[in-house]
Amino acid sequence: MTNFFALLELPESLSLDPETVETSWREKSRTPAPGGDDRAAALHEARATLVDPVRRLAHWLALRAPDAPPECGIDPALMDLFGAISPVLETTDHVLARLRRASTALAKAVLTREAVAAQLQIQELLQRIRPLQAALLDRFDAIEEDGRAGDHQPAARALGQLKFLQRWEAQCHERLLALIAT
């Protein structure tokens, strides 16, 4: 596995600042080097991995403890949210399906009321997701310290929870975009 921290010549730390990653990626992309598309693709992947805290944590953990899979159970703190998500997504998908079938401006307009309601519900969900993500990111320093002391359990646990949150956030975001664009 390529070490993306090394590729961009950055310290192997969880608390990398995205701007630092960007600057290094730009410098490396500017200098032509052998490798062509392969090198460019690797640089782009390194940058995409390191600017995203969840992917950064996953990569960091994979480098230090390749055999530790993320813990996959849902933490009790996320259970309520988990229960709230599927009904909202389902309602939204129903509205979207009808919007897509509508071929006239009026038929679409009639559905706007429901579409706006769905949009508000999704935004509420996103507002619940974000603080939970932030709380986990705040623990990165402690997680890194535990990792350096040889305990990768906290990293694996945080990664598991972050992956759930990220998936839900992506699902909400996709629906929002679809509502905007349909």
């Binding site: 401006a105 009026l106 679409k108 307009a109 009639v110 706007t112 009321r113 579409a115 706006v116």
Partner: peptide
């Protein structure tokens, strides 16, 4: 106009 009105009141 009716369609535009619906969108407006929905928002």
């Amino acid at each position: 106009t009716l369609a535009a009105l619906l969108v407006e009141i929905a928002f």
